[in-house]
């Protein structure tokens, strides 16, 4: 059956699809109607399955491969070695500044304190000293934990006040002996670590994903343990907060987690 035949046929004007199939195909295809119906049905089902399977493969296998590009760190850094050598462990390089802000990844001026000259035999160290220290250039480290600019995160509140361990969010990075491949999201430019290695978003350890829900998980647990009873579900709690922010006169504002606003609304973390 061709499209032109279908259009020429006077009965084909806005017919029901099934009827059209039965009536107009008969003179051309000399098959029994049942057989034609079953055959066409099977084909359609087959294509449904094909489409279904293809999309599953695309969604679960091809898409993640396409979404992330693989990058290698400029210098293969050995955390374990540095933690063993440095006097104050993690804090030797990742420290709090005087004003309470967190230094994050150390700058070259910090590295120079030990690496003004090549100390050992490692070719990576030689490369580091030659290309960055001597050239006075910052190392363009690819930061696995980097969050978008709209996320406000205070290390001081979590590490100093709440006494959380680095591992809780960053994992056992301090034990690594070489840098992993950095998988960069081609759309966002952020590391795959933020969404999590598992594309479905399932995590086994607390550090394997760092999306907003993961912040919320931990904060909910904290809230549950701190309030003895009557903890609201997260959804109702969020709704109540939104109402209390938008219509302050309608609902009583309860003291939330923000020191500034005493609310738990979006702008505590999103600037």
């Amino acid at each position: 059956m061709s499209a032109s035949e279908e259009q020429n046929s006077p009965e084909a004007e806005a017919p029901d699809e099934e009827e059209m199939d039965v009536e107009t195909s008969e003179p051309i295809e000399p098959l029994k109607p049942e057989e034609g119906k079953n055959g066409a049905g099977a084909t359609i089902f087959l294509f449904f399955i094909l489409g279904f399977a293809a999309s599953l493969i695309v969604g679960w296998v091809v898409f993640p491969k396409l979404l992330y590009s693989k990058k290698i760190q400029p210098i293969n850094f050995n955390h374990a070695l540095h933690v063993a050598e440095a006097a104050e462990g993690c804090e030797s390089c990742h420290y709090f500044r005087e004003d309470g802000s967190f230094s994050g990844v150390p700058t070259i001026s910090h590295c120079i304190e030990c690496h003004e000259n090549v100390n050992g035999e490692d070719p990576e160290e030689k490369k580091f000293v030659r290309e960055y220290v001597e050239a006075g250039k910052e190392v363009p480290w690819l930061i696995y934990a980097k969050q978008p600019a709209s996320v406000f995160f205070s290390h001081a509140a979590h590490v100093i006040t709440a006494k959380m361990e680095c591992v809780a969010c960053h994992g056992p990075i301090g034990e690594s002996t070489e840098t992993r491949i950095y998988e960069e999201n081609r759309l966002t430019g952020y590391s795959r670590d933020i969404w999590g290695k598992n594309i479905s978003g399932i995590k086994q350890h607390s550090w394997e994903r760092m999306k907003m829900d993961d912040c919320a998980d931990c904060h909910m647990q904290k809230a549950t343990s701190e309030k003895e009873s009557g903890v609201q579900q997260s959804l109702t709690r969020q709704l109540r907060e939104m109402v209390s922010v938008a219509f302050p006169n309608v609902m009583e504002v309860k003291k939330g987690s923000s020191v500034q606003t005493e609310k738990d609304a979006c702008f505590v973390c999103h600037k």
Binding site: T43, I44, F45, F47, F48, I49, L50, G51, F52, A53, A54, S55, L56, V58, G59, W60, F63, I199, S200, G201
Partner: peptide, 16 residues
């Protein structure tokens, strides 16, 4: 069309 519908149904079951 069936392929497309199957694809749409399948896609909904992926993280894409």
């Amino acid at each position: 069309l069936s392929f497309i519908v199957g694809g749409a149904a399948g896609t909904a079951l992926t993280p894409l």
